[in-house]
């Protein structure tokens, strides 16, 4: 049988794990990305920070602002 303080510790670590997973998912969902598929079947996630990616992201952002 587990000692009472072990039960409390297990519960607490379980809650913190859940919270950390929630924050990870939230960060992932809020991540901006530019994903392009080509007619050849290839797919590319343009890395942010490159001129091409920044131009596309900026154009998309303005388009979203126009609504």
């Amino acid at each position: 049988m587990l000692k009472p303080h072990r039960v409390v510790l297990d519960k607490m670590s379980s809650y913190t794990d859940e919270a950390a997973a929630f924050m990870r998912r939230r960060r992932h969902h809020r991540r901006e990305f530019v994903r392009i598929r080509f007619q050849s079947g290839a797919e590319s996630d343009l890395p942010s920070g490159t001129p091409e990616s920044d131009r596309i992201a900026e154009a998309a952002r303005r388009l979203i602002e126009f609504g």
Partner: peptide
């Protein structure tokens, strides 16, 4: 503005021919 995005995507595609694209930001 949509045309500007299409041109940017064409430039970003390089030698490949664009089929589709998905751009996500925090607002939409």
């Amino acid at each position: 503005q949509a045309v500007e995005l299409l041109e940017a995507l064409k430039a970003g595609s390089g030698d490949e021919v664009l089929d589709s694209a998905h751009v996500a930001s925090e607002e939409g």
